[in-house]
Design a protein around this nucleic acid. Structure first.
Lengths: 164, 164
DNA sequence: TCTTAACAGTTAGGCAGCCTAACCTTCCGA
DNA sequence: TCGGAAGGTTAGGCTGCCTAACTGTTAAGA
């Protein structure tokens, strides 16, 4: 990609993502008993299979303490539960509860309701572009975490360059 | 759009946006003296023309106190300055400083550098899809703020349905 | 076996963005 | 002139994110 095009894309991301984030967060807040946007992906990941804290931190790109605190919040609300396999008592396995599954479903519906208002004005082509673009974003930022799964932790689970 | 398609899009947004947000935030943090992601759009808006606090809050979809605090931060760093027009001394006009402009430029370059690594693996078609999708996101979330510019404030600058 | 290093997670402390409630100042219309 | 409306700021609180420091568990080597 030409340099200027990359620059432009970078600026677009910087301008738009925070706005989307705020909007989504506000809508979830207003919908009552909902997971924070940062926790929704977590519940979705856990919907597939139980995971350890370290795996989750790597997958989401946050530090271990942050993930530990996030999970504590989700546990408090009854959406996931911790368990320690007898095999290796250091690790903590996180599983989603039935209530957690129901909540993901509920959030999906609420988000759909809010979003359908906004998406209503779009033509079919724009909706297709939106979905395609989200797919690329996922590929770039979620499916291919920078240096995850082989970072050296103890300096956080992030890529070295990302440390504050 | 069919109901299930909207639902799916909503979930995609809920899963991906926070990850992108974290990644971008981490990269800006690691780059040193940079505006928070939430402040970048602000500087960009002010690059066009000076604005009042209320305008900025409406455009960005945040409450007036939040905008006031954000601006205080930017003032402290020397990126914008407050001024009161003699015409109406209630209002506060915010202008970007030369340093602020330079910073926007610097952030653009830093973001480009980080992003180009990630975007490097994409083929031309994917890059096009990414840009197109960002354009739609902007149209949906930024260019058409829900009920802004005609909300009744004192209950915040947000749309009534968005209040916590 | 015993000691030590590596590993998984938690706790403590701190920063930033977001919110509502309450407040101050300025403007304007009756 | 006086009271309400309008533009901002301050105070207090929540959450997510971080690093540093700590606890408990496992594994490896003398």
């Amino acid at each position: 990609m030409p340099r200027t095009e990359t620059r432009d894309t970078a600026r677009q991301i910087l301008e738009i993502i925070p706005v989307v984030m705020r909007t989504v967060a506000a809508e979830l807040r207003s919908a009552g008993e909902m997971p924070a946007p940062a926790h929704f992906g977590l519940l979705t990941i856990l919907g597939d299979q139980p995971r350890t804290l370290t795996e989750l931190a790597l997958l989401q790109g946050v530090s271990l303490p942050t993930m530990s605190n996030s999970i504590s919040t989700l546990v408090q609300r009854g959406w996931v539960k911790r368990s320690s396999p007898a095999k290796d008592r250091r690790v903590v396995l996180i599983e989603v509860t039935p209530l957690g599954r129901a909540t993901v479903e509920r959030v999906g519906k609420a988000a759909e309701a809010h979003l359908s208002e906004r998406l209503g004005t779009l033509d079919a082509a724009s909706r297709r572009r939106l979905r395609a673009g989200l797919g690329v974003l996922r590929a770039v930022f979620a499916d291919a975490p920078p240096a995850a799964l082989r970072s050296s932790r103890r300096t956080s689970a992030r890529t070295p360059a990302s440390n504050g």
